[in-house]
């Protein structure tokens, strides 16, 4: 199948995601529970999105690792997958979709505006460490996204006006604890991502660490996660303050994943 066919399948996926997100938001606003429909649409979107990525992979003979279009597409896919798993396995927190899906809508909008042009896989990407490094990075970002959803609910509740709409969710203390768990998972996988990245960098450029922009920002993000986990223990933070820290981690991670690789001129362009 050619590029047009691939884009058509991708559009079907995006429409399914947007419908799922919109129904989830309306469900929260109207205090309805269209959860099976939302989960079904998410699954449909993921199947179509997987097909679109597979078609591109088959045509170009490399995975979605090089251009902004590929990186955004693969991240929308992995974040949707992470959130769909959380949505499926954790029924108690399903209304969190009303916070998470708008973040993904933004990324989908961005995806649809960038060129789906093609390029070759750089020689430094011909390694199994590409998949390991990127895989760990995607789990980290997926866990952080779920934590952001939980934290978003805590922050919206504090405003007062939306408390009723999220009343079905557990208390903020419990949401904060779940968010802490997600950040802990994220911390483990970000550490693994840094280790795998160092092995790859040693293989590709003969050094495991060189303070290039992406390495530096990835390490700063790791440090911010470390600070947020320590701060919870040290100061017994309120759910609201803990939620702000999670948002801080997400902003740092988002800039590292989607900002730094595209302003840096080093060989390490990022492939997340």
């Amino acid at each position: 199948m050619d590029l047009i066919g691939e884009l058509r399948v991708l559009w079907v996926a995006v429409i399914a995601y947007v419908l799922a997100g919109s129904i989830a938001i309306i469900g929260v606003l109207l205090k309805k529970r269209p959860e099976r429909t939302v989960l079904g649409l998410m699954a449909l979107g993921l199947v179509c999105h997987t097909a679109a990525i597979a078609l591109r992979w088959q045509r170009l003979e490399h995975g979605p690792f090089v251009t902004m279009f590929e990186i955004l597409s693969s991240n929308v896919w992995s974040l949707m997958l992470a959130f769909a798993i959380a949505y499926w396995r954790l029924p108690a927190i399903r209304p969190v979709a009303a916070i998470v899906m708008p973040i993904l809508f933004t990324m989908m909008g961005w995806l649809m505006t960038v060129s789906p042009g093609e390029t070759h896989l750089p020689p430094t990407y011909h390694t199994v460490w590409l998949f390991i490094h990127i895989g760990f990075g995607k789990v980290f970002l997926g866990a952080t996204l779920v934590a952001v959803g939980l934290s978003g609910v805590i922050l919206v509740r504090r405003e007062g006006s939306s408390e009723g709409r999220f009343s079905r969710l557990p208390e903020s203390d419990r949401l904060s604890e779940l968010s802490y768990r997600c950040m802990a998972i994220g911390f483990v996988f970000e550490t693994l991502m840094l280790i795998a990245g160092a092995i790859w960098a040693q293989d590709a450029w003969g050094r495991y660490w060189d303070w290039d922009p992406l390495e530096t920002w990835a390490f700063i993000t790791w440090l911010i996660v470390g600070i947020s986990l320590h701060a919870r223990l040290t100061f017994n933070l309120s759910p609201r303050l803990g939620a702000w820290l999670v948002l801080g981690v997400f902003v740092a991670a988002f800039l590292t994943f989607f900002g730094v690789p595209f302003v840096s001129n080093t060989p390490h362009q990022g492939a997340v």
Partner: peptide, 25 residues
């Protein structure tokens, strides 16, 4: 102290920025 840990973490973050902008890493 864990408070000291947090303070040094922030100091480490600043040191990383200095290393990043400095030729002598």
């Amino acid at each position: 102290s864990l408070r000291l840990t947090l303070g040094v973490f922030i100091f480490l973050g600043l040191s990383i920025m200095l290393a990043y902008f400095n030729e002598v890493r």
